[in-house]
Design a protein around this nucleic acid. Structure first.
Lengths: 197, 197
DNA sequence: AATGCTACTGGACCGCTGGTCCAGTTGTCG
DNA sequence: CGACAACTGGACCAGCGGTCCAGTAGCATT
């Protein structure tokens, strides 16, 4: 994927300090209330450092998200069933959805921060706007699994619909209240309706 | 509902001018790129007038959304089947989803503007944050219909999941490209899976 | 038609934000 | 150990949402 890109020792130290500080702030505030200056202060660095490393608010959030999603990514690609290869598509999809819901529940505001925070700046008239890598990966995984078992469905759109769940304010609020299992059950019901045993 | 609240003639004129200008700007720019100053300028009024009437960016978007959703609201409550009362829940739900998709497709960025634009200001630590009235209404309608036919399901959460669709950037992009019928079909497939004839 | 009351108007203004800039510092490598 | 580039941080900038209030103009009452 992306090469490790050799960084200087202090740069590495500050990078993780910034990520940890952001993480910590996100557990206590809604993402839109967190300013980059706050992040810098909480990490004990200057604002310039934050932007030099991450480029923008969006870049920071994306990096954090990628870090959080790494374990799941590995489990899917090289881990054992039911998440990894080996189980039937339906089972893998259900396992994946459960894992994603759990991941998002543990990282409340992060997804919310990523959605709207997409490259809104600069270019005055801009095309569709690429989704961030984690979304792309998840979408690809879901649509592939759906397609394997139900090639007659619009797997691409269905994957978007399932993932849309995680960008919804009311649902994120529900997750914050600990209703993760309700969401998980509902998604299972939906998938089971389309992909019976 | 809300009383008409007698307004002065010039106030009415400016109110509609602002709404039309916003509408027009939304067709050409992403909601986050539109500033309140632009809206004011496009409507030919001062910024103070916009805020005096709508209170905040969120208030403006909400008002516009309510205006757009009014017809659908009436069709549901007092119109003929399949949208109005009379048809079986499953049919009413499918008709409603089709209508909503069509409504959102015609008003691209509006939903996107409402989600993130919710009361983020002021209060430093804020509870769940109420959804806007249109969302509330749609959610209530869907969950009621689901409950009528499948009382065993978590109708509340399912309604949130179905509506989450409309807050998703990738899906809004798809709608912008004219893929409304794909989304409609996918939602029909999902609902039909849970609510067979 | 004139008058007074008050809702409405609009632009100067405020605090704060994301992002830029660059002079100074500090790791790294030959 | 020297030199060079990568990194640092805080002053700085343009633009934002929102406030304020002196001035204006619609409406009721006569």
């Amino acid at each position: 994927m992306t090469e490790p890109e050799r960084l200087r020792a202090d740069a590495v130290r500050n990078r993780t300090a910034i990520l940890r500080a952001t993480e910590e702030l996100l557990t206590r505030h809604h993402p839109q209330q967190i300013s980059m200056e706050q992040v810098a202060a909480a990490a004990g660095v200057g604002k310039g450092t934050v932007f030099h490393r991450f480029g923008s608010r969006y870049g920071l959030m994306r990096a954090l998200m990628q870090e959080r999603a790494q374990d799941l990514e590995i489990a899917i690609n090289t881990g054992p069933p039911p998440l990894g290869q080996g189980a039937p598509p339906r089972v893998r999809l259900l396992a994946f959805l459960t894992a994603v819901v759990e991941l998002v529940a543990r990282n409340k505001g992060l997804l919310a921060a990523l959605g709207p925070a997409a490259p809104v700046t600069a270019a005055p008239e801009q095309e569709p706007r690429e989704a961030h890598p984690v979304y792309r990966s998840w979408h690809g995984h879901i649509s592939q699994l759906v397609h394997q078992q139900r090639p007659d469905l619009d797997a691409d759109m269905l994957a978007h619909v399932l993932l849309a769940t995680l960008h919804s304010e009311p649902i994120l609020n529900a997750l914050e209240r600990g209703d993760g299992n309700r969401l998980d059950r509902t998604l299972r019901d939906l998938v089971t309706g389309l992909m019976p045993e």
